[in-house]
Write a protein that binds this DNA or RNA. Structure first.
Lengths: 212, 212
DNA sequence: CCAAAAAATGAATGAGTATTCATTCATATT
DNA sequence: AATATGAATGAATACTCATTCATTTTTTGG
């Protein structure tokens, strides 16, 4: 009864417990930062005991790796879904991907803080890079081929799909940073405007000015 | 005699010693990450003893704050210099600022790693934000007014200087992240191409296609 | 050259933290 | 009801690290 509503059990399946601990880790990193998150914090956040992290993850390091992997997987699910649910045109899909990154559930200051916490350690912990590598390559490939498709439809001489894809990815990451840092003066709506202005500028035929 | 150059003395002025320790801190963060940098590491890097950090900075926290402040100051110096040395036109100045961010001495993986290390902790340590706030406001203001000036020179109906400035700032930060993360496949030259493509797209009259 | 001040040292301290493991306890099985 | 299983506990352990401070080294000013 003392535990969560859904299960009255005090023992959960291994998968459930692991997920619960990963969720707690994300919360702790968002609140306290990666550097100040201790295994004790995570266990307390989950309402469990000291040793639970090592029981389920062997080490704190491993917990952090698995947490990053989970975040990457979670994002990929949304990414795939966004494309599936979008219109059939390449421009529909590209716009859907951009809107995805600025959706409240993803462009959320807590979640962004966690991503940047990992990125902030990526040089000294190459494992973090390895975990995200395959995902990033996939996103780049999808974005690039959508841009190439739009360019192939004509009207954009001299525009490189690769360069546009790089700009879109980097711009999105930079706008996330702006949302993270400039909490009071910048938000995801302004960020979406920036993206739309860029799309209109680079692919005017596919992204005409939006009347407000 | 006491304050000159390399000095034969084994004790340095307070300012010299502080700077030496800040330099060591930057190196350690670049190599080991913010989370794994200890006061002992910094002292060893500087070739000095254990207690030296507390002697000169009172606390590790204070050392980190001062290190961030130094980085921010150092960047501002370059920023001001880049504008001074550029051509007289607003477009010259804007291009100079963009080139500044992708200059080898600034778009250096070690230095970028340090910036992202601090940004990765910014939500849980608001002091980091406070230290950079005034600088960032100044850069935004300068960039925005340069864009406004270019727009005022005519030919860009419906373009917002504020939005372009935000895109440029965010794009630069995102490109830094790309340089940090994708060490093998991305570099500052590709980043500069992205910036130039964007400038050409948004302000074609001021930034015509560059023949290579 | 000497005494006082300042700078630097580095061993000692103690707070904090990841990890271990003997034990408890809920549940499933017989 | 008795037994087995393995999830969970939490006190104990081993270790790291920021900070302190008594002592040594160096500089300064008379």
């Amino acid at each position: 009864m003392a535990t969560t509503a859904k299960n009255s059990k005090r023992t959960a399946t291994r998968a459930t417990r692991r997920q619960q601990l990963i969720d707690s880790t994300v919360k702790c990193i968002a609140r306290k930062g990666l550097g100040s998150t201790t295994t004790g914090d995570v266990a307390r956040e989950a309402g469990l005991s000291q040793g639970i992290i090592n029981l389920h993850f062997k080490s704190k390091n491993n917990l952090l790796n698995e947490t990053l992997r989970y975040l990457a997987d979670e994002y990929k699910t949304q990414f795939t879904l966004a494309i599936e649910r979008s219109g059939p045109l390449a421009s529909d899909k590209l716009r859907a991907l951009m809107a995805l990154d600025l959706r409240p559930s993803i462009c959320d200051r807590n979640k962004i803080a966690v991503w940047f916490a990992f990125w902030g350690e990526v040089k000294s912990r190459p494992r973090y890079r390895e975990i995200c590598e395959k995902y990033d390559e996939y996103y780049d490939e999808v974005t690039r081929s959508l841009c190439d498709e739009i360019i192939a439809e004509g009207g954009y001489p001299g525009v490189s799909g690769t360069a546009v894809a790089t700009v879109l990815t980097s711009l999105t990451n930079g706008l996330w940073l702006a949302c993270l840092v400039n909490e009071k003066t910048f938000d995801r709506k302004q960020a979406m405007n920036c993206i739309d202005e860029y799309l209109n500028c680079i692919f005017p035929k596919h992204f005409p000015v939006r009347i407000l």
